[in-house]
């Protein structure tokens, strides 16, 4: 079995700060990490490798430093890594990104046919959850999104059974290989990298592909040109016109503040009182 896992390198958003005065992003020194959602996809692929035996290839599109994300994946147990990088990709939206990744997966499959593609649920910077479905559509793969568990793979009959989180429940779906899975978060726990893994990762020759190597001929489909969506403006959230009305009273004791607040609340919003009474059960 050959599994491709798409991972993205992203800025660690928990460390991004907005300058309080100028409202600009302070990105300096923010470390880059593997998109946390993609680790669930990688771990699931590695588990399938443990159970059924598989070649796991990790794929990332991004600037040259994104190689670090791929090495990390090697240290966990991925077998091969490909970085797709080209200036021509700059400004790609999800349609253009999924086109480029789909082309690269097509190239990967020329050496060894691809049975399964894994993606994360979404990225923490793009945050769209669209690249996975986009790749599936372009490669004409069956699409299984929000998968919480892979129940079984039958490599003989080329079938797979998974559990998929739907709005009000869980769907158990059976489909044919090859297919694309986007993995739900919290479904497994990433293993630790072994010493040997880290050693291998340091020496592993990450393959670096430009657009031609990724099989892309039509430059109108990548980068800004291949992106239907355009960012027309970036702005800070509107401050609200009026600030909170501060509740005060003479004593400022919590008890008196509470009584003052409740009196005000129910005078100014009489409908709330019935909403609350209706919600309260007799059990209190």
């Amino acid at each position: 079995m050959h599994i491709v896992v798409c991972i993205k390198q992203v800025p660690d958003s928990s460390q991004i700060r907005v300058h309080p005065v100028t409202n600009t992003i302070m990105r300096q020194g923010v470390p880059a990490v593997v998109n946390p959602y993609d680790l669930f996809a990688l771990e699931e692929a590695l588990r399938l490798k443990d159970t059924y035996g598989a070649q796991v290839t990790v794929l990332c599109m991004g600037p040259p430093p994104a190689e670090a994300a791929l090495r990390k994946a090697i240290s966990f147990g991925a077998d091969d890594a490909i970085l797709v990088t080209d200036r021509a990709f700059a400004g790609s939206d999800t349609l253009a990104t999924s086109f480029a990744l789909a082309s690269a997966i097509g190239q990967i499959g020329r050496n060894m046919a691809v049975d399964l593609v894994f993606c994360g649920k979404q990225t923490i910077d793009g945050d769209t959850a669209q690249v996975g479905p986009g790749i599936a559509k372009r490669l004409d793969l069956q699409l299984l999104t929000y998968v919480s568990q892979v129940d079984r793979v039958d490599t003989e009959r080329r079938e797979i059974v998974v559990q998929r989180r739907a709005e009000g429940g869980v769907q158990v779906l059976q489909t044919r290989l090859p297919c694309l899975i986007t993995m739900l978060e919290g479904t497994n726990e990433m293993r630790f990298a072994s010493q040997a893994g880290m050693f291998r990762a340091a020496r592993h020759p990450v393959r670096v592909w430009d657009k031609a190597a990724a099989g892309i001929e039509d430059v109108a489909k990548i980068g800004l040109k291949g992106s239907p969506t355009v960012v027309s403006k970036v702005f800070a959230p509107q401050p609200k016109a009026s600030k909170a009305e501060q509740i005060k009273c003479e004593s400022n004791a919590p008890k008196d503040l509470a009584v003052t607040l409740i009196a005000k609340l129910f005078t100014q919003h009489p409908a709330l009182e019935s909403a609350i009474s209706a919600g309260t059960t007799g059990s209190i």
Binding site: K243, A244, E245, Q246, N252, A258, L261, K264, I276, T280
Partner: peptide, 30 residues
């Protein structure tokens, strides 16, 4: 406080129980 409707500047560990008690009394009367 920039976007709340009402604000109480105080220690939540004291204000919360006070609110719980005041709401309880108010609702009982109502």
């Amino acid at each position: 406080f920039d976007f709340a409707t009402y604000g109480i500047v105080g220690n939540a560990l004291q204000v919360l129980p006070a609110l719980t008690e005041a709401f309880r009394q108010h609702l009982a009367v109502a």
